[in-house]
Design a protein around this nucleic acid. Structure first.
Lengths: 224, 224
DNA sequence: TTTTTAATTAAACGTTTGTTTAAAATAGGG
DNA sequence: CCCTATTTTAAACAAACGTTTAATTAAAAA
């Protein structure tokens, strides 16, 4: 991450040019996820990476090239991991497991919710359709299948609509992360690992009704 | 809205200078709600209002002045209306009525969800604290009080946590509006008046359990 | 009528932006 | 050791931004 600032010319090979690429991608993720595409300044990204702004053009062509490279570099592994999970196991435990993993992923990558909102919900960028196709649609399809099966098998109450139900599950899990700054202030909930556990349990209980015994660690819902 | 473009100098009084102010505020709401504060261009706002960019300085001091004026002009009546409602009536019907009104407000002001997200969730602007204090905190306080009362009275199942429950209700209602473009594509749900009705009913049923699919308003909050 | 005040425009100012160019310095193969 | 390709910097570019200024015209006041 730390680079020697010298004059012009090729540097005395210290790690190789790939380090510059990595530093730019890292700084780009910080800026793009917290400020959005247009508002992120190439010059400041380059400054944080301790790199000349012209290197963006050298390695990525232009600003959008850096953005797309950063997207595929950081989001693709997560998408593949979520696809592997895919909520194939139905029932209360299957959903709980899926939600727990999903929420933990969001928790471990704090830039993801912001990026999701900026890329999917607002019209910024042309990568939006691709992003929806590769992310939201797969998650929602998995959820909808699970909810539909459990309503038919009677494990979920019949007044639950598969479309509204799966959308509801997504709302309940995603919204606290999206609205994190407001939620922490207004609801006095720190969004951390215990919160994720309480949130997923609470969500599952809301849909499947109360359950007195659970098999994975008897941590009851306690405040904070 | 239509103004004559002439040379410099005070115009021959046609409606008065207040028309320019109004046109600027109207154009500002369009741009600020769809693009955010920083990304909205004063020059383009002025162009849409068919007004010289310098008029922003004349009437509002600077860009932030226009932004704040636009916020208080458009959001304040909504906040006051929501406060009047305030979810004071507990129970199934009270919540349903509150949610219906709340969602209909979001539906009728399509720029509101975007503005909410940009102003409250992201760190843009310095008006954020004020916005949270005047909007999110009051809604959440009303919801939390309602949920807490109904859990204590036994009308809501005991496994519902007041904080997580009220946050959940907010998530279920707000998220579809925030994520509208993605929701319409992925869940194939048009976000309109019938959807709002189904969404609020579904949300209430999720919390209060199944109830006969009856008409709105004439159902006692009985337990089965 | 004369003077002052209010409203508006065109033009310019100083930044900041993404991008391009030209020069410079090292690496690596011949 | 030379030559070419690679990597880097400083500087400049044109465009867009928020803002300011000076000029100009009509309304209102005297």
């Amino acid at each position: 991450m730390a680079r020697q600032v010298t004059g012009p010319g090729r540097p005395r090979s210290e790690g190789g040019g790939q380090a510059v690429r990595e530093a730019l991608l890292h700084a780009a993720r910080n800026y793009f996820s917290t400020r959005g595409f247009q508002q992120a300044s190439l010059r400041k990204i380059a400054a944080e990476a301790q790199v000349n702004p012209a290197m963006v053009h050298y390695y990525f062509g232009n600003k959008q090239g850096l953005y797309i490279a950063m997207l595929s570099e950081t989001a693709t592994p997560l998408i593949e991991e979520l696809e592997r999970l895919n909520a194939r196991d139905a029932g209360r435990e299957g959903l709980q497991e899926f939600l727990r993993h999903y929420a933990r992923t969001l928790l471990a990558q704090p830039w993801l919710p912001n990026l999701l909102v900026r890329e999917v919900l607002f019209q910024e960028g042309e990568v939006r359709d691709d992003f929806i196709a590769r992310f939201a649609s797969r998650v929602s399809a998995a959820l909808r299948g699970l909810v539909g099966r459990d309503v038919e098998s009677g494990e979920l109450p019949p007044h639950i609509d598969p479309a509204l139900g799966s959308l509801g599950i997504l709302s309940l899990i995603l919204f606290p992360f999206i609205a994190q700054p407001a939620v922490e202030r207004v609801f006095h909930q720190h969004i951390d690992e215990p919160f994720v556990e309480r949130l997923t349990r609470h969500t599952v209980a809301l849909f499947y009704g109360t359950a007195n015994e659970n098999e994975q660690g008897d941590r009851e819902c306690g405040q904070e």
